[in-house]
């Protein structure tokens, strides 16, 4: 929790930086195992915002599929994917970023959506065509939050 507070504190100062330099989904470079080393925006993620995105049903909605004890105040945690307690101890930042951007590069055929991917979909509802589920900075924010889940 201490780390979480510190990241949020730092982010508060730089959170308003311009996102003009975001890497587009098609320009993301994946490593051999699906990891993504470079930040999508170059702006440090805001963990507090990432926490909100994690539970927001219209954004990450990660809680739909993952148990997360750090959010025990939320009544419903899904069980489609593994528990995310201590996830930052299992995966490094680049790996976690890769899982968020396009989990299919790491877990073939997974049900987990690709959060920063905007092409190759069939029959997408009009208002979501050509869009990613999360914006570049939102990915970095969720990533900053995940990095606080160390045990």
């Amino acid at each position: 929790m201490k780390i979480f507070a510190k990241v949020a504190f730092v982010a508060a100062f730089i959170g308003s930086a311009s996102f003009a330099g975001s890497i587009t989904p098609s320009d993301v470079t994946f490593g051999e195992d699906g990891e993504v080393t470079a930040s999508l925006t170059g702006v440090v993620g805001d963990a507090a915002n990432g926490r909100k995105l994690f539970m927001n049903r219209k954004k990450g909605n990660c809680l739909a599929c993952h148990v997360n004890s750090e959010m025990s105040e939320q009544s419903f945690h899904g069980e489609v994917g593994p528990e995310l307690d201590g996830v930052a101890a299992r995966w490094n930042t680049a790996e976690l970023r890769g899982i968020l951007v396009n989990s299919k590069m790491m877990f073939e055929g997974t049900i987990m959506p690709s959060f920063y991917w905007d092409s190759g979909y069939e029959r997408t509802l009009k208002k979501f065509v050509g869009k990613t589920i999360l914006e570049a900075q939102e990915v970095e924010d969720v990533l900053a939050y995940l990095s606080t889940l160390k045990e």
Binding site: N61, A64, S75, F76, I111, K131, I133
Partner: peptide, 28 residues
């Protein structure tokens, strides 16, 4: 079995691979 939509899922992803699991508040 065809995946569709921005969430890129098929009926089977939820109703065959995951029945019995909770998806947030819903028991699949």
């Amino acid at each position: 079995y065809t995946r569709v939509g921005q969430l890129n899922m098929s009926c089977a992803n939820c109703h065959e691979d995951n029945y019995g699991n909770m998806i947030r508040a819903d028991h699949l």
